[in-house]
Write a protein that binds this DNA or RNA. Structure first.
Length: 648
DNA sequence: AGAATGGGCGCC
DNA sequence: TGGGCGCCCATTCT
């Protein structure tokens, strides 16, 4: 590659719409470094030229600020953080840890001076320094900020040189071994092109019907209040007793110096009140005051009795109808669901509500972990993750999705891949029956169901369990059958899909030999647990399952992402993505584009079976749930028809 | 007082 | 005792 410039900006905060750019650092080489004003002419010309190249560490952050400030970005963009993740998804991805790893501690030359400056203004970060510097005309911190920024630029540039070289060496090795797709091709064809799409998505955000959301908040809150009163009344006696115990504990702890500060602080918030939001308190209520034996319920990771919904559901079912606890648990379950909605979505000053700017939210979509120092983070399979808010776990069928609406004059085009991962299991395994089922548009769930002597629903669960290599124990739990029965089901399953069984054997052989897996699009996943732990230990089995699942999940992620890239290349605005579904915002007078979108999605990547895409127009995100339900019904109907035909 | 961990739960 | 995520709260650690 020709000349490349490393770029890093310093800002007064993390929000490209609210915070200001302090300056732009650029490094042409390790000795030619500058810290420029955002309006610098030469800089603007460079970035506007499609022949130029820039690299940054998490460059999306910088570009969102620059674009918002009116800077045109037409040059090619590269990212050392995303590159580092492809080299090793288990390593720390921050600029500092990577610099440390690749060229030692010189990366921290200016750290001490910076820390001194930050603490001198009682600040927490360089952002505080930038803010103070911009506000104060005497600019007392400019030289510190610029020095720090330029150092980051140099480190990014050095890192780029070393990382891209390592990626190319790996690429050549894999080519010799017969691969056509490698982490290098993945980076060039998928990761970096997607960055431009994500920048557009994040800058655009999504509109919220704030008025309706507020109305819904009031409904939830009054419901919740009522339920809380009901529960507190029912459990009044037990709660009193627990509160006495809590009070005694506070008194006892107060007498020790150590406990003083903590207990007093907590007392300000909850006092010695029973807290329905505390799983500890709930456990005390159920297992101590109501005397439910802890042997009868599921245990948590640390061996304590679980108060999870499924655990309490079992308990609820086992109680006599007029048992007091049964009535409490009934209300508690609903109360907790409502509370979750309130805290995550409708509560003022937290969750979704606190993230609304005007009438929009601006979610982030991560390709790699944010890399807080000490953590690895990241989406190891190549899926995206979303946050602030997380658009990928909005509750299905709840009111919440109704409040996410298109811009005026626009409509949401929603599409999703039908049974994407099962189709990819067919493609990757080349199992004859799986392939035939999808080529001839047969109902796979029905086929499996019949083969194991069960209904369609059981067939469906079994099919999905297969992708995850579920145990008989787990399947039994899912299907409400005995473990022995499920062992037979699994045997029957693999007799039917011999090709898939062979595929798993081959996968296992590969994993045991190399301790890693490769996706068809060239993404790698190392499985250190394979060599670090003896066979058949818990950790080893976990790593093996990760290895089985990776090629399927990763290829699915690639396909959706590549569809997004192609759509964006054709000027379509993508609003959000949930792994196998995408929402595009289309002007109302451009609906002729809908068949084009579907065609692109279905044909973006060639596999051995047809990919099926369902596509619909929506006026809010909530309708995607309705569609999903309808699809299920349609499938059922088809299978009934076919069964009836067979009978007739 | 803030960071880290655990429990729990939402999604594909 | 399927895989992959993020976020809330309470609690403990430092």
């Amino acid at each position: 590659m020709k000349k490349i410039i490393a770029l890093d900006i310093e800002t007064t905060g993390l929000n490209p719409r609210k915070d200001k750019i302090h300056g732009v650092g650029v490094a042409k080489s390790v000795t030619e470094v500058d810290y420029l004003d955002v309006n610098h002419n030469g800089l603007r010309e460079y970035l506007a030229n499609p022949e130029n190249h820039i690299v940054g560490h998490n460059i999306r952050f910088d570009l969102k600020f620059l674009i918002h400030a009116g800077v045109t970005i037409n040059c090619n963009i590269w990212d050392t953080k995303l590159l580092a993740q492809l080299l090793n998804e288990n390593q720390e991805l921050g600029l500092k840890p990577l610099s440390q790893k690749y060229f030692g501690s010189s990366a921290l030359d200016n750290k001490r001076e910076l820390d001194r400056a930050v603490s001198s203004i009682n600040g927490r970060s360089v952002a505080d320094l930038c803010l103070r510097d911009l506000e104060d005309e005497s600019e007392p911190f400019y030289h510190i900020i610029s020095k720090y920024c330029m150092e980051d630029c140099v480190n990014t540039l050095r890192l780029w040189t070393m990382l891209i070289d390592e990626l190319k060496r790996g690429h050549n090795k894999m080519l010799q071994a017969g691969y056509t797709n490698t982490p290098l091709t993945y980076y060039m064809e998928e990761t970096m092109p997607l960055e431009k799409v994500l920048i557009q998505m994040e800058l655009q955000g999504i509109r919220i019907d704030v008025e309706q959301l507020r109305k819904y908040r009031d409904v939830l809150q009054s419901e919740n209040k009522q339920m809380l009163a009901e529960m507190s009344l029912l459990a009044g006696k037990q709660i009193n007793s627990i509160e006495e115990e809590l009070y005694a504990k506070v008194i006892a702890t107060k007498k020790t110096d150590k406990g003083k500060a903590n207990v007093l602080k907590r007392s300000e918030k909850h006092g010695t009140k029973f807290n329905w939001q505390s799983s500890d308190h709930i456990a005390t209520l159920i297992f101590d005051r109501f005397g439910i034996p802890i042997s009868s319920v599921e245990k948590t990771e640390t061996g304590k009795p679980s108060t999870s919904e499924s655990s309490l559901e079992d308990l609820h079912n086992s109680l006599e109808p007029e048992h007091l606890l049964k009535r409490i648990l009934g209300t508690y379950k609903t109360w907790k669901k409502t509370l979750k909605l309130i805290t995550t979505y409708t509560g003022e000053d937290k969750g979704l509500m606190s993230q609304i700017e005007g009438d929009r939210v601006y979610a982030e979509y991560l390709q790699a972990g944010r890399g807080k120092e000490g953590t690895t983070g990241g989406t190891v399979t190549g899926r995206l993750s979303s946050r602030n808010p997380n658009m990928q776990n909005l509750p299905r069928g709840s009111e919440i999705k109704k409040f996410f609406v298109p811009d005026p004059g626009h409509i949401f085009v929603y599409f999703d891949y039908s049974q994407l991962e099962l189709r990819l299991a067919a493609h990757l395994s080349q199992d004859p029956l799986l392939i035939r089922a999808y080529k001839e548009n047969l109902d796979l769930h029905e086929i499996t169901g019949q083969a194991i002597g069960a209904d369609r629903q059981t067939g469906k669960s079994t099919n999905f369990a297969m992708i995850y290599d579920a145990s008989a124990w787990r399947l039994a739990d899912m299907l409400n059958k005995s473990v022995e029965e499920c062992q037979l089901i699994i045997e029957d399953f693999y007799k039917l899909y011999k090709g898939y069984r062979q595929y798993l054997w081959d996968q296992r052989k590969f994993i045991m030999r190399f301790g890693c897996v490769v996706s068809e699009t060239g993404r790698l996943r190392r499985l250190p647990g394979i060599f670090e732990h003896p066979e058949r230990t818990k950790e080893w089995r976990h790593a093996l399952k990760q290895g089985y699942n990776f090629p399927i999940q990763s290829l699915g992620a690639s396909i959706t992402k590549r569809a997004m890239i192609e759509l964006a290349n054709r000027n379509m605005k993508i609003v959000t993505q949930v792994h196998d579904s995408v929402v595009v915002s289309l002007p109302e007078d451009k609906l002729d584009k809908v068949p084009e979108i579907q065609h692109i999605a279905e044909n973006i990547y060639p596999v051995s079976v047809p990919l099926k895409v369902d596509i619909k127009l929506l006026t809010s995100l909530s309708e995607s749930d309705i569609i999903q339900k309808q699809e299920d019904k349609n499938e059922q109907q088809c299978s009934n028809d076919r069964t009836n035909q067979a009978r007739g």
